[in-house]
Amino acid sequence: MKQKVYSVVLKGTLLFFGLLTILPFVWMLSSSFKTNIEIRSNVQSFIPQQFTIQNYANVLEHFNFLRYFINSLLYALLITLITIYTSTAAGFVLGKYRFKGRQLLFTCILLTMMVPGIVTIIPRYSIMQFLGWIDTYQALIVPSSFTAFGIFMMRQATFSIPDEMLDAARIDGANEFYLFHRIVLPQLRNSIVSLAIFQFLWAWDDYLWPYLMIRTEKKSLLSVALNLFNGRYSTDYASLFAATSIAIIPVIIFYLVFQKHFIEGVSSSSITG
């Protein structure tokens, strides 16, 4: 009996917090179908009293959502692919090869994880200017092509590959490139999925660097474009809700479709082990 009460209370609490967690999204969505007058009124309800899709029409007229969404998607996917590859390669070399200075190199890489991004942003900006990369996508992609976190994570992961397996392949005449692409990469599948998810979410969330680098509005990423839109139409609350919904909903759908991979990727990653 006591068990049962405990279980009901537990379920109730979980459900309550679950609702609380998604409430902001529900409210955002419902407000995006309200008129400005209703949004500002003293009487609030979750169901729009006067349902309108005018806000979305306004937003689509002034906010090239599809373009920014595709920019962001391509950017995040590209960064994810590159860092998976570079992190695994570097993790493999640092984890499985023995050479002088290996430990030192690894320690240095780890130290860079602790340097606040803002320290390096100022000189990086000058470097990009020197290279003439401002307002280009390589300015976004090249500086993110290696990540200390990824290298750290993949180095730990390579420990799970037995040396004997690699040596056996080597004796069979496999060269290191073959070994890396055909044995190491497939073996680290699970860790790669987790890294990919982290990396994708971070790239999707990126704000300051893309904001500083990209000038041409058509090349903007979604976060930056959204912030710009919100600055321009700061008094049109209903349109702001619509724009924000448009920016968030696809991510939520994407997440709901792949949620199993998202969550399991994170929880099965080596960092939790």
Partner: peptide
């Protein structure tokens, strides 16, 4: 067009 705050960050850059 840029909002006022962004304008003065982006223009000098």
């Amino acid at each position: 067009e840029n909002p006022w705050n962004d304008y003065w960050t982006k223009l000098p850059l």
